[in-house]
Design a protein around this nucleic acid. Structure first.
Lengths: 125, 125
DNA sequence: TGTAACTATTTACATACGTAATCGAACTGC
DNA sequence: GCAGTTCGATTACGTATGTAAATAGTTACA
């Protein structure tokens, strides 16, 4: 649903909110402390922009606001992924997969899982 | 080497130049015609910006300029991929791979290739 | 040889983004 | 009750980006 795109810095904010489900501005600020060196004001600006982009909602909770995701993470991931695939790999999945596979460190379990997915793909054709 | 980042629109320009090895402005414009509906002036602006970013060079060839990649495609792909992985998947390769695998259409050959890559990964651990 | 056509360079402008300070209202401790 | 702190809201500002027009230099044809 969200047709707007989430910027680089905004993703960092959204990532902490998605994993916490809901947070006050302070919550976001303290969780980002250490990961980034943004001033609190900077983070608040991004929260506002994310609300305007309808990626977040906020409700008053007592005397402050609680921010909550409005767009699902999976949807945003899907959109960003599609656009990345298109832009950098010309829409070709196989080279993208090969590229990331080569550059990845994978546990044996993960390898098994991926092999499993490949098998499913194969059986569908 | 290129520390600057290539924007969305600029990638489209670079993609045609990388695949042609070298092109005049006209060459780029005609190749993008159909793919985009940018005015020629728009494309020239992007060529200039890409030169300033040191992603392209240009040499006079007869009476016009020929643009040629200065940054290797593979390097730009690597950089963009790393930043995407970080931003959207928190640096975790496995979920990224799973995501794109699920959403991809792959030929039997491609599946074989990917399986091969998985095997190599496995043997390295 | 002048003018049309094309090329490259310069300039333009609105929106997005990164980064933040400031302002006004509310709360809190003295 | 007043001052300092804390919040959210408003404003700021430089660079990047998408999108392109204007201008200047050059070529080529009439």
């Amino acid at each position: 649903m969200p047709q707007v795109s989430i910027s680089d810095a905004e993703w960092q904010v959204m990532n902490v909110i998605w994993s916490a489900h809901s947070l006050t501005a302070q919550g976001v600020i303290s969780r980002l402390d250490g990961q980034t060196d943004w001033a609190p004001a900077t983070i608040k600006t991004m929260l506002h922009r994310l609300v305007k982009k309808q990626v977040l909602t906020y409700e008053p909770q007592g005397n402050r606001y609680v921010y909550r995701p409005r767009a699902r993470r999976a949807d945003c991931v899907k959109q960003a992924s599609r656009s990345f695939l298109e832009r950098v790999f010309g829409g070709e999945s196989a080279p993208l997969l090969a590229h990331f596979l080569r550059g990845s460190k994978l546990s044996p379990d993960e390898i098994t899982q991926l092999r499993e997915l490949l098998n499913e793909k194969e059986n569908l054709s």
